[in-house]
Structure formats: structure tokens, C-alpha cells
Computed example of a mutant assay.
Amino acid sequence: MTENLRAVEAWVGGLLARLQPAQRRALNRKVAQDLRRSQAQRIAVSTRRMERRTRRARSARICTGRRTE
């Protein structure tokens, strides 16, 4: 696994070295935007799951007559 990662790192490093500074900035910007978008989607999914669990737990407490409020 480590060897594969090093090979990819060397290959990408060679490609990045050939880019002009403006091209490198544009590529960095695109990677950062894609990363932010994917993280936002991941967080949204996680938040929805947590909200569903909370609603179910609250509903179960109300149905059983146990109130924590």
C-alpha cells in the first residue's frame, strides 16, 4: 500500500512540476472546491441520520410515557 502511494505521489509530483503557477493555483482551487462539496454532502447525510435517531428516541420516550423535559 505504501509503495503504491509513493508511486502515485511521484507521478502526480511530476505532473505538478510541469504546471505554470497560474495553472497550479487553478488546480488547487478546483481540488479545494470539490473537497468542500464532498465534505458538505457527507456532513449533511450524517446530520440527517442523527436527526432521525433523535426523533425516534424522542418518539419512543413519549409513547412509553417517559418524558425527560
Rank of each mutant, 00 (worst) to 15 (best):
M1Q: 06
L5K: 13
L5R: 14
A7H: 13
V8Y: 09
V8R: 15
E9K: 15
E9Q: 10
E9P: 01
A10V: 05
W11G: 00
V12E: 11
G14N: 09
L16C: 06
A17R: 15
A17M: 04
R18G: 03
R18F: 00
P21G: 04
A22H: 10
A22K: 12
A22D: 08
A22S: 10
Q23H: 07
R24Q: 09
R25W: 04
R25F: 03
A26S: 12
A26V: 02
A26F: 05
L27Y: 12
N28T: 05
R29W: 15
K30S: 11
K30P: 01
K30H: 14
V31G: 02
A32L: 02
A32V: 02
A32H: 11
Q33A: 07
Q33G: 01
D34C: 02
D34K: 08
L35R: 07
R36P: 00
R37I: 00
R37H: 10
S38R: 11
Q39P: 00
Q39F: 02
A40E: 11
A40F: 06
A40W: 10
A40S: 12
Q41D: 14
I43P: 00
A44N: 12
V45W: 10
S46P: 01
S46L: 08
T47W: 07
R49G: 02
M50W: 03
M50V: 07
E51G: 01
R52G: 08
R52V: 03
T54N: 09
T54W: 12
T54F: 13
R55T: 12
R56P: 00
A57H: 14
A57V: 09
A60M: 10
R61L: 10
C63Q: 11
T64H: 07
T64F: 02
G65S: 04
G65T: 04
G65F: 01
R67K: 09
T68H: 14
E69Y: 14
E69Q: 13
